[in-house]
Design a protein around this nucleic acid. Structure first.
Length: 208
DNA sequence: CCGCCGATCTTT
DNA sequence: AAGATCGGCGGG
């Protein structure tokens, strides 16, 4: 019903785990990105296990929204780590990032795909176009749709006790050897292997 | 299963 | 004018 089976884990009660502290996000996006794999992204009763991410840096990364310095849209990327950077893409989609790196240095990790975990019925209701459950959160805008993340949550602090969105550790370790490859949908810095995913996970996004 | 293309808004 | 995308449609 509400909870998806996770292969390799015993059926039954789902561990909620504990919210990641701000220190987790204070490192460089390139360091944080692979560590976020297999962490849990939770919004209310809905959650996914993060299976694909991309690192974006700031003024030294031409593919980053922060490359040309702060703007009203991107200023949160220049602020303290552990906040949510949400942007509107292609006129119709929301995409969510976690701000990483020290305060004053721009950086973020784009949350690209997740495996549905709890509140799966609500995720299906939020994603009527998804034919199969592996399509529920298998893309950055699909993930935000499945969990109900939009611009109204932009800038929130994920590390506060009362945060509407949290990233949690339920005891599942990141993959020891994550798949690394080029970031999707960019036209510059395409040689950098800054996209990370859980090897073999069927919920990863399908690059075009 | 795969590739093409339109939708629609922000930023440059 | 292009973009950190998605889903519908047509063809194989």
């Amino acid at each position: 019903m509400g909870t998806a089976a996770e292969p390799g884990r015993p059926a039954g009660r789902v561990r909620r785990g504990r919210r990641l502290p701000r220190a987790f996000f204070a490192a460089d996006p390139l360091t944080v990105a692979p560590r976020l794999l297999n962490k849990v992204l939770e919004v209310g009763d809905r959650s996914v296990r993060i299976v694909e991410v991309e690192a974006y840096r700031g003024t030294d990364d031409p593919a980053s929204h922060a490359y040309r310095g702060p703007t009203p849209r991107t200023e949160v990327m220049f602020g303290p780590p552990g906040h949510l950077y949400v942007y509107f893409s292609y006129g119709m989609h929301w995409c969510a990032n976690v701000v990483c790196g020290p305060d004053g240095v721009a950086g973020a990790v784009l949350l690209r795909a997740g495996a549905p975990r709890t509140g799966v019925d609500a995720q299906r209701a939020a994603r009527p176009a998804a034919r199969r459950d592996v399509d529920l959160a298998s893309g950055p805008a699909r993930l935000t749709q499945a969990l109900g993340i939009d611009g109204s949550l932009g800038g929130i602090d994920l590390c506060r006790p009362d945060a509407a969105v949290t990233v949690r550790d339920d005891g599942v370790a990141p993959p020891p050897e994550p798949v690394a490859g080029p970031r999707v949908g960019i036209s510059v810095a395409t040689e950098l292997p800054w996209r990370f995913s859980v090897p073999g996970d069927p919920n990863r996004s399908r690059p075009r």
